[in-house]
């Protein structure tokens, strides 16, 4: 059913992405591709993988923005983006086949690839550009929140997090349950002022972003570097005195 679930389950799973610590390394995108090309959504097809005009299905895309204009307040923000598993996902309700659905128990938005007819209307309905068409298989694909990893009993419990979260070297990605006010993700959103992307569209994303912390701008940097005193012409004794006093 592409109608949204009328009862909500105990869990609302999603991600918190910390724009303060993300270093834009693309490891999340790479590990996501690695895991998902052999899991629930397999394969994540690449076309022309080793030549010009290459294109393929990726669930994570990392943008880089320049914020605050020019001058001392300017900053660079790396911005990973994937499906936000919205509370009001129009991508689900527009689906004519029932291939797209939002799970009642944990809020994950999924595609049944055996039912999808590849009409692409769901990608038209998503303002975040999170759904991609696999032209080789002829169906739509999207982030599953690594559903085949987070519930996988064959993995050690600590590994049961989405691939993008597991691999992030700067701990900029956090996975958890937003329905639990004491979960780490709920706490982070409360303490750091987590926000929704494009709140004006009314899709109510589950996953949140944390803003960059206020930096020093250029204020923390030394105003001017002092030139090193010129010791040319100084004898051995004076150089010894300089070394002692410089300690």
């Amino acid at each position: 059913m592409t109608s949204l679930p009328t009862v909500t389950g105990d869990k609302r799973l999603g991600l918190v992405i910390d724009l303060d610590t993300c270093v834009g390394c693309h490891a999340c995108a790479t590990n996501c591709k690695e895991w998902n090309t052999s899991g629930h959504s397999a394969p994540l097809t690449d076309v022309n993988a080793y030549q010009a005009e290459q294109r393929g299905v990726w669930f994570n895309r990392v943008f880089t923005y320049e914020v605050g204009g020019q001058g001392p307040s300017a900053r660079t923000v790396h911005f990973p983006k994937n499906c936000l598993h919205c509370e009001k996902p129009d991508c689900v309700t527009v689906c004519p086949t029932g291939a797209s659905y939002k799970r009642a128990e944990d809020g994950i938005v999924l595609i049944d690839h055996d039912k999808c007819i590849g009409c692409k209307l769901c990608s038209w309905a998503c303002p975040y550009g999170a759904r991609e068409y696999d032209e080789d298989v002829g169906v739509m694909k999207k982030c599953t929140l690594c559903i085949d990893k987070i519930y996988n009993k064959n993995l050690p419990e600590g590994d049961r997090v989405p691939a993008c979260v597991a691999t992030c070297p700067s701990k900029a990605r956090h996975f958890g349950d937003f329905a639990d006010p004491d979960s780490k993700v709920s706490q982070l959103v409360r303490e750091r002022g987590g926000f929704d992307l494009m709140p004006e569209t009314g899709y109510r994303p589950t996953s949140k972003y944390l803003p960059p912390r206020p930096g020093n701008g250029a204020n923390g940097a030394p105003k001017k570097l002092e030139p090193a005193p010129d010791l040319a012409g100084a004898g051995k004794f004076l150089r010894w005195v300089d070394r002692v006093l410089s300690r």
Partner: peptide, 16 residues
């Protein structure tokens, strides 16, 4: 779209 308007103007620096 990015929620970064609180810091001023936002400009695309690099594509993914």
């Amino acid at each position: 779209a990015t929620g970064l308007d609180r810091f001023g103007e936002v400009r695309l620096l690099e594509m993914p």
